[in-house]
Structure formats: C-alpha cells, structure tokens
Design a protein around this nucleic acid. Structure first.
Length: 209
DNA sequence: CACAGGATCGTT
DNA sequence: ACGATCCTGTGT
C-alpha cells in the first residue's frame, strides 16, 4: 500500500553532518513539513566551510551566524533586506560553520495555508525564492536554531530525488571573491519549473568540490 | 552610539 | 529598474 504524503520518515542527524555541497544536492526532492503545509525542495545553495567569502561565517562567529556553527540539522534563519526571512539547514559536525540555503520549493499540500501567508497567491511560483519559501512556511527569526530532525514544528522528511540536477553560480553574492562568485554551488531539480530568479543553471557534469 | 548595507520581492 | 525596511557588524 502506498504511503501517504505525511508518512515519510524524518531525516536523521547523520544526513546533515557532511559537506554542504553534498547536503545541498541531496536536499533536492526532500520535504519540509509544518502542520498542514508540505513543500518539496527544488532549489538550494551551499555555503561552505572553510574559505567561503560569500558565507555569513566568513569573518568568524557573531551573534547572528551562531547557528551556522552547529549542531547540524538545525535551522539558521536570518532577515534579509529588513523584509525577507531566509531558511538555511545547518550542515557539518558541530564547531564548523556551514549551511544550505533552501531557495525554492513546490507545494505538495496545504496550499490554502500557504495562500493565506502569501497574500492570496497560489501560483506555481508561490514558494519559488528563499523569501517566498520562508513566508509560505510562516517562518521568522524565532525559528533560528529549530531542529529539523526532531518531531514537532518544522520537520524535514525524505522524499524522491530528482532524475536530473542542475547547477550554477549562487545568487546575490557580488561582495564575495571572484572564485566564490563563480563557484557552481547553487543546485536545482532538473524536472521542476519552479525555480527562483537568478542566473542560468546548466546540467551538472563533473565533480563538485 | 551612529551608520552602511544586505544569500530578496513585488511593482513600475 | 527601483524602493521597501530593519537587523547586524563594524567603527568611533
């Protein structure tokens, strides 16, 4: 018998305790659940450790980026442009600072709740963008540090990996060093149209590191 | 204590 | 192409 959408297993902590590039790719197809709302992740970005001049942790530990330093499997939520909240998944073992920004998702369930949070919008792009995604889930700064691997609140569940993965440069990081601006650490599901604004993505080829 | 700027979005 | 909007990191 087919399992219902809400019966997928929670993702264990060990999933998160790896390189952010690996986690970023494998998060595609996974599912974020909060109450009636279920989202399938379609786009991610890796922020690595060490040596990533685009990362919020590039200058060491601060009160804002504290969640990035672990433990893995928790949320790092921050406010962008004073308006939009961004959801990150903390990766790597505790003591290292890395995270994956969840940039886009498609709605599998709970569209009514999403629409209420998104000013009545219901289109395919309703959660295509990190600000839109956090708003669809009703997240704010109080969710910073919330564990995704434990039952309750916001949970991350297994889903179905995409058949093809696209990759490209990360979005909105012009302040970073050229090699980090160009690094193809943004990933998207090849079979889903709902992707955020940003530069072009191409079929993934060789290794990633 | 002041201030510059940002991992974006919706509208023009 | 632009303005919104406020928290944060840095410097005095």
């Amino acid at each position: 018998m087919r399992r219902s959408l809400s019966e997928r297993a929670l993702i264990p902590v060990s999933f998160y305790e790896r390189d952010a590039l690996i986690v970023a790719k494998e998060l595609l197809g996974m599912r974020l659940r909060r109450g009636p709302v279920l989202l399938e992740i379609t786009e991610t970005e890796a922020y690595r450790w060490p040596d990533d001049s685009a990362s919020h942790a590039r200058s060491g530990r601060t009160p804002r980026n504290a969640a990035m330093w672990g433990p893995a499997g928790r949320c790092y939520v921050f406010l962008c442009y004073g308006i939009h909240h961004m959801l990150n998944v903390v990766t790597h073992p505790e003591g290292e600072a890395a995270a994956v920004l969840v940039r886009s998702a498609r709605v599998l369930a709970g569209l009514e709740t999403v629409a209420a949070r998104r000013r009545g919008r219901t289109g395919p792009d309703v959660a295509a963008g990190p600000g839109k995604l956090a708003q669809a889930l009703g997240l704010d700064l109080t969710w910073n540090g919330h564990p995704l691997h434990e039952k309750g609140g916001l949970e991350l569940h297994f889903g179905s990996p995409p058949a093809r993965i696209l990759a490209g440069p990360r979005v909105g990081i012009d302040y970073a060093r050229p090699e980090h601006v160009q690094a193809p650490w943004r990933f998207a599901s090849g079979d889903v149209a709902a992707v955020s604004r940003g530069g072009p993505l191409s079929e993934i080829h060789g290794d990633l590191t």
